[in-house]
Design a protein around this nucleic acid. Structure first.
Lengths: 333, 333
DNA sequence: TTGTACGCGTTATCAC
DNA sequence: GTGATAACGCGTACAA
């Protein structure tokens, strides 16, 4: 592998001059510049970024820490992130944590050890204290799923209001027997969505039967089970609000397996407006998050932090939207 | 940020000794070791990997280059990769290329500039020559979607045989009017799958109507359009083989929108056994690829290359499987 | 068992 | 305009 020295020797100049050529220093004589460039070409030389970064103490790389790649929800957010950071010459890399704190720490080390300049963190599982400790020294922002109350910048939606809107819509449609299928793990988002669900019921003086709050896993098969269990209650719900599209499609399948029709006998609302909600049969009413914008915003926050580690922390709430599709109109007709 | 010098000074030893402690050199006296460790703790010191890697000239990081995060197909493959490389102490990072050759090159630079030790490449868009040039100097393997005929190791399935099996199954069910919905871009996999499709028809002396080979985009809405177009042919197909689950669900939706029932009036087969195939209604008959194993295998190949850049190139074909679900049994009943 | 000193590949500050 | 040379933070012969 050729180094800057090899180039310098072959071009009969000093390494300093080669470096200047590499960094487009206007002071180099055109002749010299061309000669050096020819040698670079000939030797197929590329600068070793470890050397460069060691010297400059930055890498122009940012890391996005995702809990999983099994959810296409993140794809558009990352496009937004890339769109924004690319303007400033940054590259985006993705790490997958599997919601494992050890893997999270391992990835945070990339930051501490200067291999990346900043991290956009989704759904951190390490403790709030640990996260805050890291953010005191390094640029970190949270996106979408964050630790509630943590003093680390985040950008997300108003999860409580979003759930409220969804449930309120069901109530407007005439439903009163509304169940909720949510995560049994206490994510910030699910806690807030449950609060929104309760708030909407309360406001319309609808009592929440304890059976109607169904906590389970974030997967379709759990949604199916939920539907079976909920529909076999004596007083079964006429509408089900679910905190994830992936669970909602399971709920739909479960309902239809019992011979009932979603959008006629039972209404279902999902969350996230992921690709499956557009193509499922029936298509799914759901809450849409402004994903691209969320990515952009998180990126902006991070770039600020990178530029100035003492930049003020910000907590940004973006607007959500209720997307109405085929899975809800039971009582409207 | 504390450096090794700060630690050395505070611990009243040389940087060499600190370095030894960091790398568990057995020669350091326990007393010294403990003293140094205390200081490390106190100063909250973490070694700068840029310095270390510059010196060692490796990073223990490998990069996985994905075309998109909008397909959950890759999630399990990456788990397999991680499982395998973690044994050797490597960390996995993901880059998203959007099938953009420039972004691919940008990521390959991470390799050339020593920020990662190797790359597992999915669906490279750069030219074969360019890829081979990189692989001459750096550890690279291809996974799943590869450049046919390239002299760069890959691991995949036998796409032709897989398509053959799928179509053969349809023929066994009694179908003779079988259409194929495929990608209009000439991916290696789609070319081979088309060959398998043709091979199966040919073997059973079934003529392929030109209308029956439908080339379009890799998205559900295109699948829907395909279904509409195919079913409005004078002689419409009774079965549709699709090269991706994402298109297949669009096909299903398209068929059902025309008042026909999939699995009764028309059969549909997808490809990849992604999560949507298990939860769609009807569930989807599809080709399953051994994803975890594919990841493991690619990782092994890459680790070999990292260990010895002259390790022999290997081209590994793994076994696929036809997973029969609800979307196919029209003519069996 | 520990310390000294050099080198990894680059950039930046001086001189000239 | 260009060249020496000192850093950046670390690992490791070699010496002690």
């Amino acid at each position: 592998m050729a180094t800057i020295k090899d180039v310098a020797k072959a071009a009969q100049v000093s390494v300093a001059t080669v470096s200047r050529v590499l960094n487009d220093d206007p002071k180099v004589k055109p002749d010299t510049k061309q000669k050096v460039q020819e040698v670079i070409e000939a030797l197929n030389y590329t600068p070793n970024l470890l050397g460069r970064n060691l010297r400059r103490s930055y890498t122009k790389n940012i890391l996005v820490l995702l809990p999983t790649l099994s959810n296409t929800f993140y794809a558009t957010i990352i496009k937004g992130i890339r769109y924004e950071v690319a303007k400033a010459g940054y590259n985006v890399m993705v790490g997958v944590t599997d919601l494992n704190p050890d893997i999270e720490r391992q990835n945070i080390r990339l930051l501490e050890t200067k291999l990346v300049d900043g991290i956009i963190f989704f759904a951190p599982q390490i403790s709030q204290a640990e996260l805050e400790e890291v953010e005191a020294c390094y640029p970190i922002v949270q996106c979408s799923e964050y630790i509630q109350g943590s003093l680390v910048s985040w950008v997300s939606i108003d999860n409580q209001k979003a759930a409220y809107d969804a449930v309120n819509y069901l109530i407007e449609l005439g439903h009163t027997r509304i169940a909720m299928v949510t995560s049994k793990k206490p994510y910030t988002s699910s806690i807030l969505r449950e609060a929104g669900f309760r708030e909407a019921l309360q406001k319309h003086h609808i009592n929440l039967a304890s059976d109607y709050l169904y906590k389970t896993d974030y997967i379709p098969s759990s949604g199916m089970q939920a539907a079976h269990d909920l529909l076999s209650l004596k007083e079964s719900p006429t509408a089900i609000f679910t905190i994830a599209d992936s669970m909602a499609v399971g709920v739909i399948r479960g309902i239809e397996d019992l011979g009932k029709k979603v959008g006629r006998d039972v209404d279902v609302i999902g969350f996230d407006n992921t690709f499956v909600s557009k193509i499922y049969h029936p298509t799914l009413t759901t809450i849409s998050q402004p994903r691209f914008e969320m990515g952009e915003t998180a990126a902006k926050l991070l770039l600020n932090k990178i530029q100035d580690i003492h930049a003020s922390k910000e907590y940004v709430t973006l607007a959500h939207e209720l997307v109405i599709r085929e899975s809800t109109h039971t009582l409207k007709k």
